[in-house]
Design a protein around this nucleic acid. Structure first.
Lengths: 233, 233
DNA sequence: TCACATTTGTCCGTATGTATC
DNA sequence: AGATACATACGGACAAATGTG
């Protein structure tokens, strides 16, 4: 009796460009190649790996989409090692949600639950530096408002800083991802000046509650903040 | 004064293969092309888009890595539209966490907080069908144990079913992502038979608490279950 | 401003591997 | 077992972009 090969052999698809991309990826993940490093041009990579240029290009496409490298054309150009890979994951998840016809309400509900869990952790773990960064963020946002500008990025950054104060990198990535998706979902109608002003006001109050160690008030304020964002559609 | 081009022109979509992949991706996202559909072979796609085969191939690489299509070789093969795009995002996040040197403790903490939030929602939203699916899952796991096999996938699936019972697609994706990463982090030491048996026991108790509407007990059991998994390293 | 070198982007022709009928 | 249809891979060629002198 012949062994069913689907049981034992789905391990290798034997595609050369995958092999090449995996080799380069490992060099980056293991830190041999560091952010900012320039890889050899396509032709030279082909010589070193003993493969054609087309194969190299397909490997580079994979690495580029995965966020490991960026590519610049022309003199002095070529593939460069990038530092962050979160953005591309956000992009893929965004399309995954879109395909699954995920509603805005679902995203808001998920965002609220996660940020509440994060905030709860922040109360136990935040240090002086974290508080300081949050204060600077709010101060900058208020400054921009005073100048008549919308502190859109600062308003977004506040939530990232909160996640960082939880001292858990997973939360930073999750909050970044979900909030980006949330922002994209309602991007057709950007918030008005009054709305952003309301966000900053809430952020200031959350920060006060955090300093005053008033956990329940902070959680309630965060909920109001998120619902405020939801209604901005 | 010359306008800084980084302010206005980061829109560059000058690359043909990006254009091609975007066009095909939109057809899939908008549902014109549905899961299981077979796309024309590379040569024909090249003719329709008026581009070369290499350009088509690079576009297909992007779509493949993004999880929108899979590619089969040989007669009757070609690019096929896939249904789920979550797996690739998980892969990218996994490497992102790895590069950021995220610890197992951080992943476990994040997983626990999210699953507790999800379980809390499940108490309000789960219907009869959800309970039934969870019961079937536990029954199958117990059955495998009785046969002396490790119900590894079932033990994983239980948490996905819980997320689905929350009726929020975002949670399904998040739980799937984090749990997969958690599993990979401890994959060097797979759980023993006794451990998996312990998981299933906890799952059964959580299900009982869910049916009995004992929210606090269910949350406590979930915490025990997750900590049990952590200790299996 | 004008070449000029470097490197990616693109196309074509061709050959080989692979899965199905 | 052989023909077919498809992806995979190579090499050559030229265009386009980009920085240098």
């Amino acid at each position: 009796m012949r062994v069913n090969k689907t049981l034992f052999s789905p391990v290798r698809s034997k595609r050369t460009f995958e092999d090449v991309s995996l080799q380069v990826r490992d060099l980056i993940v293991r830190g041999v190649l560091k952010p900012g490093d320039r890889l050899p041009p396509e032709a030279e990579l082909g010589e070193q790996f003993h493969v054609g240029r087309q194969t190299v290009r397909e490997a580079l496409r994979i690495l580029e989409l995965s966020g490991f490298i960026s590519i610049q054309k022309g003199f002095g150009g070529g593939p460069f090692v990038k530092d962050s890979t979160v953005g591309k994951a956000t992009d893929i998840l965004w399309h995954a949600f879109k395909m699954a016809k995920t509603s805005l309400a679902e995203v808001v509900a998920a965002r609220l639950l996660i940020e509440k869990a994060v905030l709860n952790d922040v109360f136990d773990r935040a240090g002086k530096e974290d508080i300081k960064k949050l204060q600077e963020n709010v101060a900058k946002a208020k400054d921009l408002i005073a100048k008549g500008q919308k502190p859109f990025d600062e308003s977004f950054e506040f939530h990232i800083l909160l996640a960082k104060a939880s001292k858990n990198n997973v939360f930073v990535v999750l909050v970044e991802t979900i909030n980006t998706i949330h922002r994209r979902l309602r991007s057709q109608k950007p918030p008005t000046f009054a709305m952003v002003k309301g966000f900053v006001k809430k952020h200031e109050q959350i920060l006060e509650a955090l300093i005053g160690k008033d956990r329940q008030r902070a959680l309630r304020l965060l909920e109001e903040d998120t619902r405020q964002i939801r209604n901005s559609r």
